[in-house]
Write a protein that binds this DNA or RNA. Structure first.
Length: 394
RNA sequence: GGCCCAUUCGUCUAACGGUUAGGACGCGGCCCUCUCAAGGCCGAAAUACGAGUUCGAUUCUCGUAUGGGCUACCA
């Protein structure tokens, strides 16, 4: 690959849940790559699924990204505001014969699918819509007949070039003519992704491994759209300690949950960066500047990785141990639910506890314990720590 | 079922054909220490299995096993 113009990358979450640590890491790698290559990091909200997308979740994702320091250069762009773009693209593909209308109902397709399943065959759409002459297709559409728009998949092996997995080949019979636009006019995910990636000039697609098998569809779409195919980098999944894909039921799969238990954003950032990427030497604790300077797609590992809360806690403790006292105080103060002592006392307490507290919650709690004289002292502690003559003074 | 991906200590990872397979978390021990931490030193702990290529495989190829993903008018 020759040196070219600065890369443009994007993070494209769909607002169907809060920001997951897996998503956060994807965003983080995009960000690091953009910074390293002096490129542009774009945020795009994929909210085309009207049934599942919720506005407050978009806001939640935005705030989680801000907290983690995942700052983007352009956006957020909402796909729900870009429907005209997709409609026009569908028209174009239809006009140039790269896509066609199909008039089967979901029920009919379901029957076909069941039949194939019963026969032990892999289901593929028949491609019947391909044979409808353009003028007839046009007429039926104008008459209001319900239809979807499907892409004509080329009957050739599609080679996906992936920066972390190398060349991956997909034989032609593995893909069928998938749906671009639903019968209610809503454009579908694979379609909007590609239209937007083209329109936004995306040069590198860095995303979760779960999209690798979808990539040949995207490659076919980019070609049909007459656009250059971006480079891909597919990241291994993040797993729970049981080696299953990390999810809500593992607890603390969302970025906010870590924020709420007193994890510092820089610690989570550092931890996530090293979950699947390594600078190549033995460094573990890295500053954001170092990461932005040294990040490289070529040093991303291909295998899935287990999210280990213990190590995150250790990294957090490292951050706490190194942070300037004033800053640490400010970050812990929100967790000092039982009040804060006067500043000089608080600062002294910070120094006393910075090697003991692993989270800002623990620090906040420690700080609060200096806010007022306790009502009673632990008898064992008294006996051990307080000499008889001082005890008399109390 | 079909297609695709992955596999180094329990976990995160380094080693881009030749290393006593390195580091980190966690774990154990010792030191430091009025306690608890932190810190320092030491230790146990890995190339999934089987073939092949090669003078030589963690590294390249194939197979098996195990995990995972995709296979929607979800994203």
């Amino acid at each position: 690959m020759s040196a070219s113009s600065p890369p443009r990358v994007r993070f494209a979450p769909s607002p169907t849940g809060s920001l997951h640590v897996g998503g956060a890491r994807t965003a983080l790698y995009n960000l690091l790559f953009a910074r390293r290559e002096k490129g542009t990091f774009i945020l795009r909200i994929e909210d085309t699924d009207v049934e599942r997308s919720r506005e407050e979740l978009s806001a939640q994702i935005l705030s989680a990204m801000e907290w983690l320091g995942l700052d983007y250069d352009e956006g957020p762009f909402y796909q729900s505001h870009r429907t005209e773009l997709y409609r026009a693209a569908a028209e174009r593909l239809l006009a140039q014969g790269s896509a066609y209308r199909a008039f089967e109902t979901p029920e009919e397709l379901d029957v076909e699918r069941k039949k194939a399943e019963a026969a032990g065959r892999a289901y593929r759409y028949s491609g019947a819509g391909r044979d409808i002459p353009p003028d007839e297709s046009e007429r039926r559409a104008r008459a209001g007949e319900r239809h979807v728009v499907r892409l004509k998949m080329p009957s050739e092996t599609i080679v996906v070039t992936d920066r972390v997995r190398g060349q991956v080949e997909f034989p032609p019979d593995a893909l069928d003519d998938f749906v671009l636009v639903r019968s209610d006019g809503h454009p579908l995910y694979h379609f909007t992704v590609c239209v937007d990636d083209v329109e936004m000039g995306i040069t590198h697609v860095i995303r979760g491994d779960d999209h690798l098998a979808n990539t040949p569809k995207h490659v076919a779409l980019f070609r049909a759209l007459g656009a250059p195919v971006p480079e891909f980098a597919h990241l291994g999944m993040i797993l729970g300690t049981d080696r299953k894909k990390l999810s809500k039921r593992h607890g603390a799969a969302a970025v906010e949950e870590w924020r709420d238990v007193g994890i510092l954003p820089e610690a989570l950032f550092n931890f996530l960066a090293l979950l699947g990427w390594s600078p190549g030497d033995d460094r573990e604790i890295m500053t954001r500047e170092e990461m932005e300077k040294e990040f490289s797609l070529d040093r991303i590992g291909a295998s899935p990785s287990v999210f280990d809360p213990e190590k995150l806690l250790w990294m957090n403790a490292q951050s706490i141990a190194r942070m300037p006292a004033e800053e640490l105080l400010a970050r812990s103060a929100p967790f000092a639910t039982a009040g804060l002592p006067p500043a000089p006392v608080a600062l002294a307490a910070i120094e006393l506890h910075r090697t003991r507290a692993r989270t800002t919650i623990e620090m906040g709690r420690a700080l609060s314990s200096y806010a007022a004289d306790p009502d009673e002292y632990d008898p064992d502690g008294m006996k051990k720590q307080v000499k008889p003559d001082t005890a008399a003074q109390l």
